[in-house]
Simulated assay, not measured.
Amino acid sequence: MNQGSTRRSEPEGVRTAAEADLDQLSRIDNEIFPHDAYPYFVLRQLFDVHSDGFLVLDSATGLLGYTLLATKPDVKTSWVLGLGVVPGSRGLGHGRRLMTEGLVRLAAEGVGEVRLSVEPTNVIALNLYHSLGFGVVEERPGFFGAGNDRLIMGLPLADRR
């Protein structure tokens, strides 16, 4: 069978990541965040600890993006540890799709609030998060070390249950 003739380019859907995805996740993380990608061993450990919150957007041509959600043991707060879409697939609503699915799952689990950090100059991410209902709750100079300032954004999930 010629696999090339059966491949589609449109997304098939958001699903929970599988261990078999780790090599491809590492490759796309390096493509998405060339200067800030998770080292493979960290990605592996995050998968082992937070596999239920590791969502990927899968297509017949491969993974188009991912989000990583980590919920604190008390289930009051979950953090978005990563959201990214491969460069050739940006601007098509894939990041929104990943985040929306993640928020639905977190609300169903009873999570009270979702938080994330974002670079203050990342206008595209800020627009996405604002449109999903997130608001800035804190400015954190040096959050990721000197010169790596971040805005902390939060979204209460009580209204989504």
Rank of each mutant, 00 (worst) to 15 (best):
F144D: 12
D29R: 05
G102E: 00
I124H: 14
G65E: 01
I124C: 12
L57M: 07
V123C: 11
Y38R: 05
G147S: 06
V137I: 10
L151K: 03
L126E: 00
T67C: 10
S78L: 11
D149G: 01
G154A: 04
A146E: 03
R15T: 14
Q45M: 12
F143I: 13
D58Q: 15
R97A: 08
A60F: 08
D29P: 01
L83C: 06
L83A: 07
G112M: 09
S89Y: 10
I152Q: 06
L106E: 09
L126I: 15
L151R: 02
R140W: 09
D149S: 01
L25Y: 00
S131T: 06
H130S: 13
A70C: 14
F134H: 05
D29G: 03
V111S: 04
P73G: 07
E139G: 07
E119P: 08
P141A: 06
G62S: 07
L116M: 06
L46A: 08
R105I: 11
V114Q: 06
A17N: 01
D58E: 09
E31M: 11
Y66K: 09
L46H: 07
V86D: 04
P120F: 03
A158H: 09
D29A: 01
H130F: 15
Q24A: 15
L151Q: 07
R140L: 13
L43R: 02
F134R: 04
T67Q: 07
G102N: 02
G154E: 07
R7I: 13
R44G: 04
V56E: 02
A107V: 05
N30R: 15
T16G: 07
A158V: 04
G147F: 04
I32V: 14
L157K: 00
R8M: 12
D48L: 10
V118K: 01
A125E: 01
N127G: 15
E119N: 09
E31I: 03
